Simulated assay, not measured.
Amino acid sequence: MKLINSDPKKDNFYLVPEWYPHSKSYMMWPKRPDNWRKGGKPAQKLFAEIASTISKYEPITMLVQQDQYKNARSMLPDSVRLIEMSYNDAWIRDIGPTYLTNNKGKTRIVNWKFNAWGV
């Protein structure tokens, strides 16, 4: 990996939209009681259904916190890969790596801090 000190926009790189063709997907298992009602149980059921459906069409990996690993494994089919990881939210586009691309097929990862305000 090479650190580049430049402006990705000036270098013609852009954020890939969620709907662009891709080879696999990642999700994060919900659990925070301050973000998800009933300890995340209704959301977990829905996330499991979504991941199960996606797994029929492409590989999917679910990131899951240690204390939720057994719960997630019991709710997800074997076709969904689980990786234990610590995190503080379940929206990977906000807290996961941000990949940029250009029209030449090159990829960059942006090093930035999410502040929820766009500032």
Rank of each mutant, 00 (worst) to 15 (best):
W29D: 01
M85A: 10
K45C: 07
R81M: 13
W36T: 03
N88M: 10
V110L: 14
N71L: 03
P77W: 11
P59T: 09
R73V: 06
K113I: 02
K41P: 05
K38I: 06
K45V: 08
F47R: 11
L82S: 06
P59V: 04
E84Q: 15
S55W: 04
N111G: 09
G96V: 01
F47L: 10
K70G: 03
D94C: 06
P97C: 08
K56D: 13
K104E: 12
K56P: 10
V80C: 10
I92P: 04
T98W: 14
Q68S: 12
P97Y: 14
S52M: 07
S79C: 09
K31S: 11
M75I: 04
N88T: 06
N35F: 06
D78G: 15
W91R: 13
A51L: 01
Y99M: 13
T101K: 15
K41A: 09
I92M: 11
T107H: 13
P77R: 01
P33S: 11
T53V: 03
P33C: 06
K45F: 09
F47P: 01
P30Y: 08
Q68N: 11
E58C: 03
R37V: 09
P77E: 05
M85K: 11
P77I: 07
W112R: 14
V80S: 10
D78F: 14
P42Y: 13
P30K: 01
P42M: 06
N111T: 15
N71A: 07
Y26G: 15
R73K: 13
A116H: 08
G105A: 03
N88V: 09
D78W: 15
K104A: 07
R73Q: 12
D89W: 05
P33N: 09
D34K: 01
L76N: 02
G39F: 11
R81T: 15
Q44T: 03
K56H: 12
W36F: 12
A116N: 14
Q66P: 00
E58W: 10
D67V: 01
R32N: 07
N35I: 03
P33F: 10
P42F: 11
L76G: 00
W36I: 03
L63D: 12
N115M: 04
K41I: 12
Q65E: 05
W91M: 04
T98L: 07
K45P: 00
R32D: 04
P42A: 10
W91P: 02
L46N: 06
D94V: 03
P42I: 01
K41N: 04
D89I: 00
L100Q: 13
Y57G: 12
L82I: 04
W91L: 05
I109P: 02
A51E: 00
Q66S: 09
Y99S: 07
E58M: 08
Y99H: 12
S55P: 02
L46E: 07
A43M: 07
D34I: 00
D67S: 10
Y69C: 11
D89T: 02
V80Q: 05
L76Y: 03
L100F: 15
R73D: 08
V80N: 11
I54D: 04
D34P: 00
W112Q: 14
K113N: 08
I60G: 01
Q65L: 08
K104M: 06
Q68D: 08
Y99Q: 13
